[in-house]
Amino acid sequence: MTSQSRGTDTAGTAGGTRVLEAHVTVVDPELCKGCGLCVAACPPGVLSLAPSFNSKGYHPARYSGAGCTGCGFCFYACPEPAAVTVYKKGAEVPAEGGI
């Protein structure tokens, strides 16, 4: 990921796309400040702060990997522009690599 495209709407889709079959929330650990607001905002409680540190010394939030309802609350609760991305079921994402 180049810094330019990281977490923004302009991420390229060259190389084809795939359609997600479940809601997925992705936290970029390096862009997270560990404030925990997303954790508190998540109704099913599928987010938590990692015990590990990111390079800035924060415990980044992370998604447990299952149970996301795609409600988007974590996205709006997060004060950082690009730390949280919520992909809802049916979203088209690049075929290659992670999201």
């Binding site: 988007g72 949280v84 049916g90």
Partner: peptide, 11 residues
């Protein structure tokens, strides 16, 4: 379908 950093922000 995707909630991500809005394009109203600079990249």
């Amino acid at each position: 379908k995707i909630l991500r950093k809005p394009a109203g922000f600079y990249d």
